[in-house]
Design a protein around this nucleic acid. Structure first.
Lengths: 196, 196
DNA sequence: GTCTATAGATCGATAGAC
DNA sequence: GTCTATCGATCTATAGAC
């Protein structure tokens, strides 16, 4: 299972052969078929597994920063941003996204479950935080879901595109931090509460 | 060549067979090999061709809106945004991006030339506009290239992700407009010039 | 359950007639 | 140049011995 994960993520569905998977797992090909039935079933199980693994850390609530105002607001948003990028810019997450995109035609239901487990969950979680910040008057967020989507869009910038294209891999914390800073600054500027 | 384009965009490199390409082109397989030599060469030629086709409209300068201030600024940015999304959310552009991402491991030089012809060119073009707006005092843009990247990141939001995953296809002008409006509003808020 | 061996289909690429 | 026919490799999946 771990071997299959590596082969699928490295080569994609089509180029990953059951022979290569069996060899890397140190077992026979027939054993793989006994366990998973078919290549499609194995692929589906693998993808769902990595989704769970990667997105487990994204949905658990952040440690609360008690009073949220001024610098604390910035720190809070930066914390969310860092956690997101810390997962999403990983070689593993990039490879997963690549494969899911590439095979979305052949496995539409897989793309759908990926979207639900990943982006949707992250958006809803972020929207909850934004709703709280809006009610506290710290930010002005009339549409939390829409603003949450915007928040993540700001983080999926040029660095992310270059990672998807294989032109950058495993960015340094400094590179990530630069993206985080600009995104948070922009987000706050666009959601500053009206001066009373 | 046109037939090959469709097959490669629809199925990706691996799943596109030379038999299918030859059949769709209405010629024999040998004829395809006579013209292009190998599958890799044909693929490379195809991809470069679609890149040129899609990105031709992105780099040509926008029709100038003479005095840029107030609503004109908004219109100008919205024009850039609409042109970008009008191309990038197309089924054809999405399919191209999908294939380039999927095969970036096997064809790294193709991913690089795609990035240069596409994102880089668009960023540089946008950065030029932002530099002008900054010098005119209409916007405050200390780092035009960085802000240009941010501008496009705002446009590659949730709708774009859903298109990449095949969960949305060929969004309506209304859907695009909503993205444009929010992106431009956010961008302007984050680059408002200091009140003198 | 796990192995070896192989069936059956398809792939990229080529040979050779016309 | 364009065709048909085919080679050799590789793929998924299965059969059958242990």
């Amino acid at each position: 299972m771990l071997a299959a994960t590596g082969v699928f993520l490295d080569h994609g569905y089509g180029a990953a052969s059951m022979d290569a998977i069996a060899e890397k797992a140190g077992v026979s090909k027939q054993t793989v078929y006994s366990h998973f039935g078919s290549k499609e079933a194995l692929f589906g199980a693998i993808i769902e597994d990595i989704c769970d693994e990667l997105l487990r850390g994204q949905t658990q609530p952040m440690p609360p920063l008690k009073p949220v105002d001024g610098d604390d607001l910035e720190r809070r948003l930066m914390g969310m941003a860092e956690r997101f990028l810390g997962t999403v810019l990983t070689g593993r997450a990039v490879a997963l996204f690549r494969v899911v995109i590439a095979e979305s035609g052949r496995f539409p239901e897989l793309a759908e479950s990926f979207y639900r487990a990943g982006p949707t969950a992250a958006i809803e979680n972020m929207a909850r935080l934004l709703r709280d910040l809006d009610q506290a008057g710290t930010l002005s967020v009339p549409d939390p879901v829409s603003s949450a989507k915007l928040f993540f869009a700001l983080l999926r910038g040029d660095l992310y595109v270059r990672c998807l294209l294989g032109l950058a891999s495993d960015p340094t914390p400094a590179e990530r931090q630069a993206v985080v800073n600009e995104a948070v600054r922009t987000f706050i500027a666009a959601h500053a509460p009206a001066i009373p």
